[in-house]
Design a protein around this nucleic acid. Structure first.
Length: 789
DNA sequence: GACGAGAAGGTTTTT
DNA sequence: CCTTCTCGTC
C-alpha cells in the first residue's frame, strides 16, 4: 500500500490554480479548502473520505459541474453512480441548479439503473429478450418458490426466501452456479436450484436485481469492443457511498475503468459509515481501490456542518474504538452546543412515555415535529413507541414497511400493464390470471405450467392445453388481455391505465372489498404517478424530438445503432414500457402523509443520510444495540459501533440516548444491561438526566429554555458521572436483598441485572445478565454480588 | 375461494 | 406478544 499525501490548504489552492483554466468563481466560492481540493483534483484515481455531514453531495455535484464547466469532459463522457434513486435524483437536481444543463441522457443513476440501461441498449449481446422484465425482491422469492416446487423439493429444507438470498449472494460474488464451490450436499442442492432458477428466468425473460449487475458485468467482460467503447467514452467516473459497494459492483467499476487506464475515478465514501456488511457490502473495497489504482491522493473531509461539538465528540469518541479504520475525526466551528442527554427508564413503556413528553416540550418550544427523529435498532421496537404516540395524539410517520410499488394492488395493476406490453410475461401472467377470481384454480394453473414447460412456450401460448371449464376461463383471460391490448393502442398512458383498471375488474374487486378503499386510492395514485412520470420524464412529443446522441462526446463517432444506448429518450420505448421500467427500479415512497408535520420513526439503517434537529436513539441496551446476533465476532461489533456512529451523527442540535431496564420482547420481559456504548462515549459530552430515585418517565430536571435558545443551553451543565441505576421493579425484597430486575455488581463480570432467582436459603441461585459477558448462574452463598444503589 | 385455527418465528435492507 | 403464513374446512 502506498502512502498517499493528504491535501493541505496550500496544496488545495495550488491544485485549483494549477488545474484547468480558472472557472467562474461562483462554483467554487463556497467550498472549504478540503472540499475545493477534492473538487479540483486532476483526472486520476482519487479517494475522498467524506465524514458525516461534511458536504459530500456538494463535493460530488460541484466536481461534476467543475469538470463540465472547465471543458474537461462533456456531459456524455462522465458516469456518476449512487445506491439509491433518492441520491441520484438529489445529485441531478443540484447539478441542474449549478449549471444550465439537461441531465437527461447523462449517465447518472443507481448501479442497478445504469446496468439496466446497459442491458437495454445491448440486450442482444447480453442474451436477453428486448423486453426483459425486472423482478423485485418478492417476485424473486415467488420465482424461486416455483422452481423448488417444480423440482419437488421440500420447502421446509429449502425455504424460498433463504434460497433467494443464497442466489443473490452468489451473484454478488460474481458467481454462476458452476463457479460455486459446494462442499456439502445441502449446498450442492442449493446450487442445483440456482441453476434451475437461472434456466427459468432465462426462459421467461426476467432478471432479478442481482442479475442486472452480474449480467452487465459479464456483458462488458465478454465483449471487448463494447467495453473498450465505454472506457473510451467515460473519461470520468464518480462513485457515491463507495464503502457500500459489494465485490461485484467493484468488479463492474474496474471493468469500466481499469486501473492504470487513465480515467478519472472519483470514489467518495466513509468507512465509518459502512453498515451494510450483512448484505455483502465490502468496506475492504476502499483499501483495495487505494492499492489497485495506486491512489495518489486521499482527501479527507472532516469539517462537519451539521452538528454541535458535544455531538461530534460523542461520535468521534465512540468510533475511535474501532480498529481497521482509515482514520478521520469530525470537527466543527459551531461550538459545543448542548450536552448529549442520557435517560434511563424502568420499562420500554416508560421510555416511550418519557420520549413523548420530551418531544412535546421540543415541539411546544417551536421545533417542527418533522425535525424530531426517533431511532431504534430493530423494527420490533417501533410498536411501543407508535402506540404511545398514537394514544397521545401526536402525528408520527414510520419509515419502512411496504413501499408504493410493492403494494399488492399496485403490483397487480402493473402485472396487467406488463401483460399488455408483453403477453408472454409468465410472472405477470401467474400473478393476475386468477385475480380477481375468475375460476382458474391452482390445479388448472399447474396443468398450464406443466404444458408450457413441456413445450417450451409461454403460459399465454399454452392456454389451449387446459380443457374443460378452466380451459374456457383461461381462454377468456387471454381474450381479455389481447382485447385490452387492441383497445389501448395509441391511448395516453393515463387512459391505458384507467381502461385496464376497469376491464381487469381490479376496481370492482376492491370496491366490494371491506378494506379496499385504501387500495383504490393507491390505484388512483398509480394513475397520477404515471401521469407525473410522463410529464417529468418528458415522454411526450418533446422527448421524441430529442436526438439520441445529443450528448455524445465531441469527436466520438457514431458506432452503429446497437452500440448506442437509447438514453431513455423515448425514441425506442413506449411511454408504457418506460413507466414499467421505472416502476421496477424505483420502489416509491413508503407512506402517504409524507407532507404532514409528523415525528419521524425509523431504524438507524434507514436514517443514514438524513439529519434532524433533535434525535432520540432508543433501546440502547446490550443485546439490542449492539444486537446480540452481531456479537459473535469482532467485525459484527465494529459494524454495530458504526451503526451507532451513524445514529449519533444524524443530530444537528440535540441528541438523546435512552435505555430501559426492562423490555417486552417476544412476549417475554427481558432484563437488559445498558449498552456498552455508554462506556465508550466521552463522559464530558454526556449529561445524565435520569433522577437518582424516581422512575416512570421522569423528565429532565434542568430548567428548560425555549427551543430557539436551546442550542446554547448546554453552557452551564455539570457533566456528572453516571448515577447508580435507580430503584427498579418494586417488589418485596428477601433477605439476600436481590430481586429480579435488580442491578448488581460482580468483581469479575462487572455490572449485571438479575434475571432469575431460584431456591432459598443457602441454596439460592441467581441468573444474572452481564451483558457482554453473557448470562451466568451464580450461587449466592459463594458469589459476591453487590446490589447497586 | 373465503375464512379461521394453529404454528412458526421474530436484526439491519436498496435495487 | 404479535404478525405472518399454512393448512383445513365449508
Amino acid at each position: 500500500m502506498g502512502s498517499p499525501s493528504l491535501f493541505s490548504e496550500d496544496q488545495a489552492a495550488a491544485a485549483s490554480a494549477a488545474g484547468a483554466p480558472p472557472v467562474s468563481n461562483a462554483l467554487l466560492r463556497h467550498l472549504n479548502p478540503e472540499q475545493l481540493a477534492a473538487v479540483t483534483l486532476p483526472a486520476q484515481p482519487a479517494l475522498i473520505l467524506a465524514g458525516a455531514g461534511s458536504g459530500k453531495t456538494r463535493v460530488l455535484t460541484t466536481r461534476i459541474a467543475w469538470l463540465l464547466q472547465t471543458g474537461q469532459v462533456s456531459p456524455g463522457g462522465l458516469l456518476a453512480v449512487t445506491f439509491t434513486n433518492k441520491a441520484a435524483k438529489e445529485m441531478m437536481a443540484r447539478l441542474t441548479a449549478l449549471l444550465p444543463l439537461s441531465v437527461r441522457g447523462m449517465w447518472i443513476g443507481t448501479f442497478h439503473g445504469l446496468c439496466n440501461r446497459l442491458l437495454r441498449a445491448h440486450w442482444k449481446q447480453a442474451g436477453l429478450p428486448q423486453s426483459f422484465q425486472i423482478l423485485d425482491a418478492s417476485d424473486t422469492v415467488s420465482a424461486v418458490k416455483r422452481v423448488i416446487k417444480a423440482m419437488k423439493l421440500d420447502e421446509e429444507r429449502f425455504v424460498p426466501k433463504q434460497v433467494s438470498w443464497f442466489i443473490a449472494a452468489c451473484k454478488e460474488e460474481g458467481k454462476r452456479p458452476r463457479d460455486v464451490e459446494a462442499l456439502d450436499p445441502h449446498t450442492r442442492q442449493l446450487v442445483t436450484i440456482y441453476a434451475a432458477y437461472e434456466d427459468q428466468c432465462q426462459r421467461e425473460g426476467v432478471v432479478d436485481f442481482a442479475e442486472l449487475m452480474l449480467r452487465s458485468y459479464e456483458l462488458l467482460r465478454d465483449n471487448e469492443a463494447l467495453a473498450a467503447h465505454y472506457r473510451q467514452r467515460f473519461r470520468h467516473l464518480l462513485v457515491d457511498e463507495f464503502q457500500d459497494t459489494n465485490r461485484l459492483q467493484y468488479a463492474w467499476l474496474k471493468m469500466l475503468a481499469p486501473p492504470g487506464g487513465g480515467q478519472g475515478v472519483f470514489a467518495v465514501g466513509d468507512d465509518d459509515q459502512s453498515i451494510y456488511g450483512f448484505r455483502g457490502a465490502r468496506v475492504g473495497n476502499m483499501s483495495d481501490f487505494e492499492r489497485e489504482y495506486r491512489v495518489q491522493t486521499i482527501v479527507k473531509l472532516e469539517h462537519n456542518y451539521r452538528s454541535y461539538g458535544n455531538i461530534l465528540d460523542a461520535a468521534n469518541g465512540l468510533i475511535a474504538r474501532n480498529s481497521r479504520r482509515l482514520g478521520k475525526n469530525l470537527r466543527t466551528e459551531a461550538g459545543p452546543g448542548e450536552p448529549v442527554r442520557v435517560h434511563e427508564s424502568v420499562s420500554d413503556h416508560a421510555e416511550a412515555q418519557w420520549l413523548i413528553e420530551e418531544a412535546q416540550l421540543l415541539h411546544r418550544g417551536g421545533l417542527a415535529r418533522s425535525e424530531i427523529a426517533v431511532l431504534y435498532r430493530s423494527n420490533a421496537q417501533s410498536r411501543v413507541l407508535e402506540s404511545a404516540l398514537f394514544n397521545a395524539g401526536i402525528p408520527y410517520r414510520v419509515y419502512g414497511g411496504l413501499r408504493f410499488f410493492e403494494r399488492a394492488e399496485v403490483k397487480h395493476a402493473l402485472a396487467y400493464l406488463r401483460l399488455l406490453e408483453n403477453p408472454h410475461d409468465d410472472t405477470s401472467f401467474l400473478r393476475v390470471v386468477n385475480f380477481p377470481a375468475r375460476g382458474i384454480g391452482a390445479r388448472s394453473v399447474e396443468q398450464l405450467t406443466d404444458a408450457a414447460r413441456a413445450s417450451g412456450r409461454s403460459l399465454h401460448q399454452s392456454v389451449g392445453a387446459v380443457t374443460g371449464r378452466a380451459g374456457a376461463n383461461l381462454a377468456a383471460f387471454n381474450h381479455l388481455i389481447l382485447q385490452l391490448r387492441e383497445q389501448t393502442k395509441g391511448l395516453t398512458l393515463r387512459e391505458i391505465i384507467k381502461r385496464m383498471l376497469d376491464a381487469s375488474g381490479l376496481l370492482d374487486f376492491y370496491r366490494t372489498d371491506k378494506d379496499g378503499q385504501d387500495r383504490i386510492e393507491n390505484l388512483e395514485e398509480l394513475v397520477n404517478a404515471a401521469e407525473a412520470f410522463v410529464t417529468q420524464e418528458g415522454f411526450g412529443k418533446e422527448a421524441v424530438a430529442l436526438p439520441v446522441d445529443e450528448l455524445r462526446p465531441e469527436g466520438e463517432e457514431a458506432i452503429g445503432a446497437d452500440l448506442l444506448p437509447d438514453a431513455e429518450t423515448g425514441e425506442i420505448v413506449s411511454p408504457l414500457a418506460a413507466f414499467l421500467n421505472h416502476a421496477s427500479l424505483e420502489a416509491g415512497d413508503n407512506q402517504a402523509q409524507a407532507g404532514s408535520d409528523a415525528v419521524q420513526l425509523m431504524t438507524v439503517h434507514s436514517a443514514k443520510g438524513l439529519e434532524f434537529d433533535a434525535v432520540f436513539i432508543t433501546g440502547l441496551e446490550e443485546g439490542l444495540f449492539p444486537h446480540e446476533n452481531s456479537l459473535s465476532d469482532a467485525d459484527g461489533l465494529e459494524e454495530e459501533r458504526r451503526l451507532m456512529y451513524v445514529a449519533i451523527t444524524r443530530a444537528r442540535k440535540r441528541l438523546y440516548l435512552s435505555f430501559s431496564q426492562t423490555r417486552l420482547l417476544h412476549g417475554q420481559t427481558r432484563y437488559n444491561v445498558k449498552s456498552r456504548f455508554f462506556d465508550e462515549l466521552p463522559d464530558a459530552a454526556l449529561k445524565w438526566i435520569t433522577p437518582r430515585t424516581g422512575f416512570q418517565g421522569a423528565t429532565s430536571f434542568t430548567p428548560r429554555q425555549a427551543w430557539q435558545h436551546g442550542s446554547s443551553a448546554g453552557a452551564g451543565f455539570q457533566a456528572r458521572k453516571e448515577p447508580a441505576p435507580s430503584k427498579l421493579i418494586p417488589k418485596a425484597v428477601p433477605s439476600h436483598g436481590l430481586t429480579v430486575g435488580k442491578a448488581v455488581f460482580h468483581n469479575r463480570f462487572g455490572e449485571g441485572v438479575v434475571v432469575t432467582l431460584e431456591g432459598s436459603g443457602e441454596d439460592t441461585r441467581a441468573e444474572v445478565n452481564f451483558g457482554r459477558h453473557g448470562r451466568k448462574w451464580l450461587a449466592l452463598s459463594v458469589a459476591k454480588l453487590t446490589p447497586i444503589d
